[in-house]
Design a protein around this nucleic acid. Structure first.
Lengths: 83, 83
DNA sequence: ATAGATTTGTTCGTATGTATA
DNA sequence: GTATACATACGAACAAATCTA
């Protein structure tokens, strides 16, 4: 899992980004109970727009890896919540 | 005026949708000074893409039924603005 | 208590690529 | 060949919830 967006890949940016962040969560690099880095962090680090970061976050919320909290951030969930 | 898209009709989806919304405005179901339902509402309710909803909105803006305001929504205009 | 900053949420604007009729 | 329709992606502005000084 390369830790950057492949811009010539067939796969959409937001799915690539979701896979990257999901892998980091599952490796324990983002700990349950803590907040993910903010949207601007991912925008700058991966060179994508806020919309793309947010679509990736939607994917991670769908798969139970994070819970999105308005005004606070994206809460990393423990393995038992993943699906 | 059936309140859904006729998918086998000769007429384009965006023109059908514009006619549906225009009729609702003219019947007073969407009141002047209020905002139309958001783009995602129409996408889901009529089963069309955002592009189609936006083309319908362009038609309604052209005919003076709404004014489109970035970041806020589509403002319903009073009868004297229709043309 | 409140005023401002931070952060996610919402919404319209624009561009591009693909598929279809 | 052209126009419609769909989806991704980026940009800009406003709204709401939360946190902080």
């Amino acid at each position: 899992m390369p830790d950057e967006i492949d811009r010539v890949s067939e796969q959409w940016f937001f799915l690539q980004l979701a896979a990257i962040i999901r892998a980091r969560i599952e490796r324990g690099e983002y700990e349950p109970g803590t907040l993910l880095p903010r949207e601007p962090h991912f925008m700058q680090h991966y060179g994508v727009s806020r919309g793309t970061v947010r679509k990736a976050a939607e994917e991670l919320a769908r798969s139970g890896h994070i819970r999105r909290i308005k005004g606070r951030g994206n809460l990393v969930l423990p393995p038992q919540d993943w699906h």
